[in-house]
Amino acid sequence: MKVFISGGCKNGKSYYAQHLAKRQQNDKLYYIATMSSVDSEDDQRIARHQDEREGWGFETIEQAVNIEDILNVCDSTGSFLLDSVTALLANEMFKSDGSVDFDASSRIIDGINVLLEKVENIVIVSDYIYSDAMEYDELTEQYRKALAQIDRATVKMCDVVLEVAYSTVTLHRSTEDGRWESLSEGLR
């Protein structure tokens, strides 16, 4: 099943997503790590996520750009966890030489399209950053808009769409055949 999860930060999205990916596992279980560290703060964040995954049986694939390239090294019948679209966009949009790529979102949408055509079991995590009362600078606003474009395009290709708020889950789209109910049974 293809599952899209979004919501505010530090709300338990990743943890919930890990459980779902684990439950979808038949053979291989992949964690697609998208964050590329730029400083010690990132290192700590990554280390915390790694600790949380310890013992789950995830094989970690680091893919900061060109997300569809994971198909070159992964078995497409595996169960995937892609965490997160937010980091992927930051990597594709803001280049290390300081330049900004405003076409990043359409490229990522194409990549996710390719991926979702090949892969059956995947959980994709994004961040809901659209409901605050700030007036952002132009660049940040472009980033928010680009992430929303990717979210909405990805949602169109997913079977299940979830919003997580402080560990409570709102189901925005579900399967009609009971597959979601049996996958998520008893999971909180």
Partner: peptide, 21 residues
């Protein structure tokens, strides 16, 4: 636009705006 779910804005006018909305 739902602007209710972020950090309380630093600017007084944006704080007023958030509550008025």
């Amino acid at each position: 636009n739902d602007i209710s779910s972020g950090i309380v804005p630093y600017e007084p006018q944006l704080r007023q705006w958030r509550e008025a909305v």
